[in-house]
């Protein structure tokens, strides 16, 4: 569906597509080679100029929409961790926990800056930062997570939900970035960093133990559709993760290997659609 959509858009922009393909490929190669030579901080500019070279006029609206959707999620994460770190040891224990949350905060702020620059350079307009209600109360300030900046266990539970949702959100958008070269690669590079964050937050939750349902072990990976959080409000972020068949290939006990149902579900993370993600984050956006 989307590959054809993208192709249609390219054809609308210029119907001599065959002639343009070679320059487009060259532009991507230029970008690829260029990226290794320029300072890392200037990469978003290179990304934008690659876009302009690639499509001549304007970046596909499909790609820009993906980038702005990603930016919205990064705003959410960046502000969440920024506020948490501002609470200091009133919320997060000193030492390793504060260090880890600060690392994650920095990455999320870098993602915001990167995406804003990339969108602007590609000829788009970054969406403005929404107003957030981290209580999950849709602006009431009185939602189920209203103590998230006072209660460390609750803070970690919300953090885990945001990270796991972020991983699923980027995964769900990859198809719309097919053929976008450096843009797809950048999105993948953010996606795996979010997964690293999720892994670490989950380790922190296991160590902390708060809000972990009895009999549940919180692992760095997602088992079945378990949130590992004693609050059904987060369940939509985990529904669909229980899949044990990939592209028609059954994973449990595949080829006589001793692969449990749990391991079969853990071995593959599942995507969420944009609508599913927006429904999950909606209570946090005023």
């Amino acid at each position: 569906m989307n590959i054809l959509h993208i192709i249609d858009e390219i054809e609308k922009a210029d119907n001599s597509i065959a002639d343009r393909l070679s320059p487009r490929r060259q532009a991507m190669k230029d970008f690829y080679g260029f990226g290794s030579k320029v300072a890392l901080a200037s990469l978003p500019f290179a990304l934008g100029s690659m876009f302009k070279k690639a499509y001549g006029r304007q970046t596909s609206s499909t790609v820009l929409n993906v980038l702005n959707f990603a930016l919205t999620l990064e705003y959410l994460e960046a502000e969440f961790y920024t506020r948490a770190v501002e609470r200091g040891t009133a919320l997060i224990p000193a030492g390793a926990p504060t260090g880890a949350i600060t690392t994650i905060r920095d990455h999320e702020n870098q993602h915001v800056a990167f995406l804003r620059t990339a969108i602007t350079q590609a000829g788009g307009t970054p969406v403005p930062k929404p107003t957030f209600d981290f209580s999950g109360g849709n602006g009431s300030g009185n939602g189920p997570f209203k103590e998230a900046f006072n209660n460390y266990g609750l803070f970690l539970a919300v953090a885990q939900t945001f990270e796991d949702t972020g991983v699923r959100a980027y995964k769900g958008q990859a198809g719309d970035l097919l053929g976008s070269g450096g843009v797809l690669e950048a999105a993948l590079n953010i996606h795996s960093v979010e997964a690293r964050h999720a892994s670490h937050i989950r380790q922190m939750r296991r160590a902390n133990g708060s809000l972990v349902p009895a009999g549940v072990v919180v692992k760095p990976w997602i088992t079945e559709n378990q949130s590992g959080i004693a609050d059904s409000a987060v369940q939509p972020a985990y529904n669909g993760e229980e899949i044990k068949s990939q592209a028609g290939v059954g994973i449990q006990n595949i080829n006589g290997q001793n692969i449990s149902a749990a391991a079969a579900s853990e071995a593959f993370d599942e995507p969420l659609t944009k609508d599913q993600v927006l429904a999950i984050v909606d209570p946090f956006i005023v």
Binding site: L188, E194, A195, W221, D269
Partner: peptide, 9 residues
Amino acid sequence: GKIVSVEAR
């Protein structure tokens, strides 16, 4: 994408 995030974890 389904595999790389598990590798990252």
